[in-house]
């Protein structure tokens, strides 16, 4: 689904800081959404924490840098970090080039898959949320 020039696939779940989550067989794949990567510009660094790290929903667990700004990445659910995309160590701009594909950032094992219900999901909710954010940045 395209919303005013931003590609926001409607089948994904979104965390309010503009990170997406996709469910794949009980595992969550997470990455930055198109709105955030366009706002941030070229990503120069992503901190990739050790695998097995315990995550608390809503708490910062990693950081990302672009344009001299260090931003936080917040856990979308309670769970455990299964894997980080090691390609981002050498090519963090994969996030800019393919934020929903090769530029994925983390794989997470959720403690309770129902946690994703608190994320933004469904075409209407996504549209409303993104349009409100676009308005903020005008």
């Amino acid at each position: 689904m395209e919303i005013e020039g931003y590609n926001m696939p409607e089948e994904l779940h979104y965390e309010e800081h503009h990170y997406w989550v996709r469910v794949e067989g009980g595992i969550l794949i997470m990455g930055m959404d198109d709105f955030a990567q366009k706002m941030a510009g070229d990503i120069v660094f992503v901190q990739l924490p050790f695998e097995g790290k315990k995550l608390t929903q809503g708490k910062k667990f990693s950081s990302v840098e672009s344009g001299k700004w260090v931003g936080s990445i917040f856990a979308p659910v309670h769970g455990e970090l299964l894997q980080s995309n090691s390609k981002l160590e050498t090519t963090p701009t994969l996030i800019n080039h393919d934020c929903y594909g090769e530029g994925w950032i983390f794989k997470i094992r959720p403690d309770d898959i129902n946690d994703i219900k608190s994320l933004i999901n469904g075409a209407e909710a996504i549209k409303e949320w993104v349009l409100a954010d676009i308005d903020k940045y005008k």
Partner: peptide
Amino acid sequence: FNVTIPNQRLF
């Protein structure tokens, strides 16, 4: 600033 993701306008 009504902004959560820093951008050039904020800078």
